[in-house]
């Protein structure tokens, strides 16, 4: 693991105040790169790669246009886009709780999603692991994060399969 350098300990607004000579020294010592042209070329290449991926995909797998909507013809299988599959399956999953009463499936479906989103928003405040950043020293955060990610993937797969 690298140690914090003089540069990396400083905030962006303070970095601007570093004298040019010191910036040159940091670059020479390999602790930093010039934004121009080094970092900028990297970013331009990344953008070109993204354009290439998007255009290639559009050519090989053209955007699909399904049949026109018919409000009187409910399709047999309604499935959302892949990124909503987990949320979609959560609604189905909540139906297993109908033994609690007829209110349970609907309310639980939305409550589970609400809790998941709120937890995601509040991650920095829920994590009581102090300032430690290395994943190997944060077993609880890593375990909770992995289980959440795996559950989301599992729910997405189940949503896709049902």
């Amino acid at each position: 693991m690298a140690h914090p350098t003089e540069y990396t300990k400083k905030k962006e607004c303070e970095v601007k105040a570093i004298p040019l000579e010191e910036k040159k020294r940091l670059v020479k010592e390999g602790k930093a790169h010039w934004f121009f042209p080094h970092h900028m070329i990297e970013q331009v290449l990344q953008c070109l790669a993204i354009i290439m991926i998007l255009v290639t995909f559009s050519i090989i797998f053209p955007a699909h246009l399904g049949v026109k909507a018919d409000p009187f013809d409910t399709p047999a299988h309604i499935k959302p886009e892949w990124y909503f599959l987990a949320a979609f399956y959560t609604l189905k999953f909540a139906q297993y709780f109908d033994f609690l009463g007829s209110w349970a499936p609907k309310i639980l479906g939305i409550v589970i999603q609400g809790i998941a989103v709120t937890a995601l928003l509040l991650v920095p405040f829920l994590d009581r692991g102090g300032a430690e950043r290395r994943p190997s020293k944060r077993p609880i955060a890593m375990a909770v994060g992995s289980v959440s990610a795996l559950l989301t993937i599992l729910f997405s797969l189940l949503g896709w399969l049902t």
């Binding site: 990396t8 930093a32 010039w34 934004f35 121009f36 080094h38 970092h39 900028m40």
Partner: peptide, 11 residues
């Protein structure tokens, strides 16, 4: 400040 004399950490 923002471009020609800006440095980016190497890590």
């Amino acid at each position: 400040d923002e471009m020609f004399e800006k440095i980016v950490p190497a890590h």
